[in-house]
Computed example of a mutant assay.
Amino acid sequence: MQDNFFLKKRFKSSIIISIILLITYGAMLITEFSIAKGLASLPKAFEWGITNFYPNAKSLERLPNILEKLFETILVSIGATTVAAIFALAFAVMGSATTRVSPFLSGIARGFATLFRNIDIAVWSMVLLFTFGQSSLTGFFALFFVSFGFLTRAFIEVIDEASSSSVEALQATGAPYMTTIFQSVIPSSIPMMLSWVLFVAETNIRSATLIGILTGTGIGFAFDLYYKSMNYNAASLVVIVIVLTILLIEYISNYVRRVIL
């Protein structure tokens, strides 16, 4: 019986793998992609990168402008994350099975979280471009919507896991609803919530770089401008600054997580 089960499982897995391989092969035929040509072009690609993609003395003159754009990107990312966290906390309290006021409001809160979380940030940017045009506000709202959806879902799970027993204890003593929230839910959940906020802030700084290409703002726009004008030395300096910034922020974020958890 057990052997038949494993045989059926292997058969299904083989079918799925075969379908994936057929789809991949079909896509290669349609797009005229050749693995051999791709591998053969790697040496030339590395050679071009070594000879063109490095900062020089002239590109270093643009460093103050690049840092200014980077600072703008970081501010937009942190601002969107902070505002999203505040709204997410309110919706998470409504959506959590532990603290919900009513099933109806809980369903609305979870619905908003699902909607905003599952629409890609690039899609939000393109939609918002019609309203706000190429501006920092477009990037801010795109980051805000995705962060809000993600954090609401994460906060709901944190509240359900971290504070269910303490909430039940306070409710048994007849404590008011707001007292339960501020004396039990938030204190017991805040370390994990802060950890999620830091994670989203890191992600948003990375995403804001790409969003800047669409919205014409921040460090992403600086890279796009230099690259399209074939100023590869300045473009490479932008890339180096972005990488160093991401590594620094990740180090700070990990340190803060170790302190609060």
Rank of each mutant, 00 (worst) to 15 (best):
D120C: 03
D120E: 14
A122D: 01
A122V: 06
S125L: 14
M126Q: 07
V127R: 03
V127Y: 11
L128W: 04
L128R: 00
L128Y: 04
L128H: 03
L129C: 07
T131V: 13
G133K: 10
Q134I: 13
S136V: 11
T138S: 12
T138Q: 08
G139C: 05
G139Y: 04
F145G: 02
V146L: 13
S147G: 10
F148M: 15
G149D: 13
F150H: 04
F150T: 14
F150W: 01
T152E: 10
F155Q: 04
I159W: 00
D160S: 10
E161C: 04
A162F: 09
S165R: 12
S166H: 05
E168H: 13
E168L: 12
A169Q: 12
A172K: 13
A175V: 15
A175E: 11
P176E: 06
T180N: 07
T180R: 11
I181P: 00
I181L: 14
Q183G: 02
S189L: 04
I190E: 10
I190V: 15
I190K: 11
I190W: 12
M192C: 09
M193V: 07
W196V: 10
V197F: 07
V197D: 06
V197C: 13
F199Q: 08
F199K: 01
F199M: 12
V200E: 09
V200Q: 10
A201N: 06
T203D: 07
I205L: 09
L210F: 11
I213R: 02
T217D: 06
G220D: 11
G220F: 03
G220A: 12
F221R: 11
F221S: 06
F223W: 08
L225E: 12
L225T: 13
L225F: 10
S229D: 04
M230G: 00
Y232S: 07
N233L: 03
A234M: 08
V238D: 02
I240K: 00
V241S: 03
V241Q: 02
I242H: 02
L244H: 05
L244N: 04
T245G: 01
T245V: 04
I246S: 01
L247C: 05
E250K: 08
Y251M: 07
